[in-house]
Write a protein that binds this DNA or RNA. Structure first.
Lengths: 216, 216, 216, 216
DNA sequence: CATGAATGAGCGTTCATTCAT
DNA sequence: AATGAATGAACGCTCATTCAT
């Protein structure tokens, strides 16, 4: 979870502080994006800024930890879904679950992801995840449940697209992204033959200036 | 295109500078998002900061002008597509065209759009656009060319999703978004019965830290 | 009135512009002090900034012109008062008249005066004025109407003190400075023997933050 | 003295820095008025700008602290003078002492006072001071030592007038304001019957451009 | 170890001044 | 001669980062 594997285990209070910082950071970055300052994080965690910097070299390193945690959640999700009876169910479950993670404040906006450095640990987690999702894709293809040409690399692309909608509408219409999540999942991994009608309500995108990121 | 309709035409040099500023701003905001400073814009345009502030009250006003220009382009596109022979062609043309605008640096990222104030002019252009796209959607539905349940409000949602992919991959793989653009268009407004296979190459999303927004 | 004696008379329109600029500057500086910009002056005068700079080398030179005009008014006042029948009346008339000029927006705050450069013209006007006021003081002393030790140099000091009160209270209580003007005049040049009771209402000075100069 | 009563005492170094900042600010604002920037203050205090902003929310808050400190000094002075044997001595002592504070760099110019926000603390101190000075005025009136009609509200008006002279002449003639301070005090609260001759040297007011506020 | 005080580059913005039109 | 567009140093203020306590 930290940027470098600690030589020896942390003292109990230090470990607790670390957890507080990561949790506060996750919540704040998910809620408010990159504009969050490390003072905000420290305050929310109930520690001093110095403590944050003791655990993470800089803001980027803290983001890296969050990214690593995100891959952890996805790996867990993929393992859970792999246990589902059919390939179709497994892949649909993974896709919708990943979107759910991304859409709830359990995950991170694209901006936050992009600002994070690509650590070795993150690369390792990402590779682990790739293997699992490739298996899900392969299994669904074997069942003929998947649109022709769908590749394992398309999995993150598809969830990322839905995430962008979720980011824009989270506070005004928290579940509204599902209309588009389901549309995409139905398009690549349909429940039956033919095109299902769209479900949910169409989403009027917020107008400029709503939900506006601060401008400085 | 400018914030207020000028009472009388600008002097030749002023007009040139205004164009340089707007063009520089469009490019920089499209490339790097909100982090761009008006010093950056001024430098890229080859003018002093004061010149930027002479034309635009503040950063928000400059964003507003860009947003208005964006709606202009979309209105123009919608009018062009309305002239196509079938409703299917017209809607597909508009959707893919809007994605193209959004993807090819000619438009603005969601973040930039969100930070812009919602001016009266922008509201008017947006309303004009709504009328045009609603007509395109109605025509396609009348032909039975459109997925059941697809609403006019879905048009910006769909292009916005593809835009988010394009933003992430513009510099590393400029046309790669098309795979997902076509996927979505085929899903809502298919060329024929049944699901077409996906086209283009699957896109490996850039890893965190690529294309990273500056962090301060 | 201008900083340098013009080699040849101005064209009619140029002379009109000069007068407009000086008048606008006088009013604005009297109302709002040094914070006034030369754009403000130009706009109020109905000319471009360039025109202001054509007549006055810089902001200081414009202030110099105002200072010169102020000395003009005082010279005129001194000449008028010199015609009064008694030395007492003449000096009291001048002192109260100078305070009146200073207190109404006919004149300039200490700040504006201090920021002005001391031009040769201003020095000449000031010297002329000194001669006139010294005569008034001498005449009053000769009559025994003046407090022992009162010197010609005390004249501007006394009016300046009252001016500072007037500056603070002009908008909330325009005539209130008179209580202190009369107090001072009575103290140095009394109407009769003994101390006259104070006249007018005591003035509650505005609290900080009232009438606040802008802070930037 | 600080903006808010600190919950717990400052660290030793922080307290030292705070004192340096306040002292530098007091001196600079007294010397040069509102034009002083917080960069100037920081530099004079030997700290970074950030340190100034850590202690004071903004420029106004720093001014507020100075104003509060000023009222503190005046309250202390009033209490000291209240202990003098006669009402005449007490009031004269307060008036001349207040002028001394105002003149000798220990206080703040009218402009600075006016720009300061009117905090609750300042209001409270000011009210305390009013009570004390009203008592001094009442006692002097009871002794018949005071000019008829002199009101408690005249106290700040009178010291403010002398302050304006002191501000203009501080650097060229530091004690010269006394001639006018004594003139005024003698006029409202004379030592004996009849008008005392003026004392000290008449003060040639500095010419425009001396002591000039910077003009930008 | 933890704290939070200190730093200063950099942001958005203003305005005295210059100069092409 | 007059205009107003252009310039850029400097302002008030923020925040990532360092380091004394």
């Amino acid at each position: 979870m930290s940027t470098t594997a600690p030589a020896r285990p942390l003292r109990a209070d230090a470990a607790r502080n670390l957890a507080l910082v990561v949790e506060a950071a996750r919540r704040l970055f998910a809620e408010r994006g990159l504009e969050v300052t490390l003072h905000d994080v420290a305050e929310a965690a109930g520690v001093g800024v110095g403590t944050v910097y003791r655990r993470f070299e800089d803001k980027e390193a803290l983001l890296a930890a969050l990214v690593e945690a995100k891959f952890d959640s996805l790996v867990e999700l993929a393992e859970t879904c792999a246990a589902l009876p059919t390939g179709r169910e497994a892949l649909r479950g993974y896709l919708l679950g990943a979107m759910e993670l991304r859409a709830s404040d359990k995950s991170l906006s694209t901006d936050v992801m992009r600002a994070a450095p690509y650590t070795e640990t993150a690369a390792r987690r990402r590779a682990d995840l790739s293997v699992l999702t490739a298996a899900l894709v392969g299994r669904a293809h074997a069942e003929g449940a998947l649109r022709e040409g769908f590749a394992p690399e398309d999995v993150p692309a598809v969830t990322s697209m839905v995430g962008s909608i979720a980011d824009r509408t989270r506070t005004v219409a928290p579940g509204a992204w599902r209309r588009y999540g389901v549309l995409l999942v139905d398009s690549v991994c349909p429940l039956g033959p033919g095109l299902a009608p769209m479900t949910g309500d169409p989403l009027e995108l917020p107008v400029p200036g709503c939900e506006a990121p601060v401008l400085r």
